Simulated scan of single mutants.
Amino acid sequence: MNSVQLHSILDNDFYKFTMQHAVIKLFPKAKVRYAFINRGKHQFPAHFADLLRKAVDAMVDLKLSITEKKFLADNCPYLDPTYLDFLQGYQYDPTEVTIEQYESELKVTIEGYWYRTILWEVPLMALISELFYMSQNLIRIDDKEVIRITKSKIESYKSLSLVILEFGTRRRHSYNVQKLVSETLNNFGEANFLGTSNVHLAMLQNKKPSGTHAHEWFMYHASEYGFKVANAMSLENWTNVYQGDLGIALTDTYTTEIFFEQFNKKFSKLFDGVRQDSGDPIAFAVKTIEHYQKMGIDPKSKIIVFSDALNLDKVKVIADFCRGKIKMSFGIGTNFSNDVGLPAMNMVIKLTETKAENNSWEGVVKLSDEKNKHTGTAKMIALAKQVLRIDI
């Protein structure tokens, strides 16, 4: 059986590096724990944990090259030279990752300093996904068919005059499929393909990587400062670090309703737009447009980045509604990187606990706009709902 390994330390989503940069600045002593959540109830074959362990242990050899460092310096000037020096010396520590298997059930946890462990989530999921298909000898469609399907999709998006991003690293079928898809999008997408969130693939395409921050940024701030001010403190700290760069705000860590209550005129003007990642996209667009109008801001000057389980049909519906009302782009993940004739995996790795300096471990929660996407213990979820006065 062939092994699976990563090809670059930059084979990761861009927002992991932007958040790592901010964490080093603001929370260098914070510790965190993450856990693998098997939403799809996938059954893992015998000895899968051993295969994953081998792949994880091999990540210790990944290093930032001089060429990769120059790419980041040239394309991401808001990343401090000191951070790029840090990343050049960074080394994955496989002891931060615990992997266990009980019959067909896989358990993966991560623990350590946040500034270090933040890079594990995406490549771990990519490895789990690729190993899952490989370990069962599941046969995908051939490369020519992958190219044909991807070309057809991007040509459809072009005909709709839409801007598309590729967000598929975490649940990709394999590195080779994502690379092929990304190359095809770049070859045939022209100005309609803005790029990829995968920094390694962005470098291969000579495009700027795409992304800002993720739910864990807001989840940590809730544990540090409290649920009521989590959104405001997250946005304030983000703007303090990036001074207006990386200006797409994620809205649904504690429901979009609560987010917009704290997305005041300062933030609404400073951030270029918002990202929708759960719930009804049309209802979200309505809320967003109404929010900007309430702030005295022309919605057509702002953008929504839609990123929740998108496919062509869903994008068409969203685009028909938003056109002429607000700018839009679409971050498409699994439908690009794992549309190969096999069922796509449904899994996440989420922040579960945090430990601020001189504090004890504390559970964290995420209250998505979709009830079945909530994460955290029942007790902490109930507490968050009570404090925020929400009922979903």
Rank of each mutant, 00 (worst) to 15 (best):
S156G: 11
I99N: 05
F193Q: 06
S197H: 04
G195S: 13
T82F: 04
L10S: 12
L6G: 06
K355N: 06
I289F: 12
L312T: 14
G195I: 13
F259E: 07
T253C: 04
R53D: 12
E130R: 01
E100H: 13
Y220Q: 01
I99G: 01
E183R: 07
T253G: 02
T334C: 05
K31G: 06
E236Y: 08
G226V: 14
E224V: 09
K70G: 05
S161Q: 14
D85P: 01
L160K: 12
E155Q: 13
E111G: 08
F193N: 08
I332S: 05
H47I: 10
S210W: 10
A202Q: 03
N311L: 01
E290D: 15
E103D: 15
V177R: 00
I349Q: 01
D252V: 03
K266N: 11
Q178T: 10
V274E: 03
T377K: 13
Y157K: 03
Y254F: 09
S197C: 07
Y175D: 03
I297F: 05
E96C: 07
A46Y: 05
Q91S: 14
D369R: 07
S301F: 10
W114S: 02
S152C: 00
L138S: 02
N240Y: 06
Y220N: 00
K325C: 00
Q262R: 14
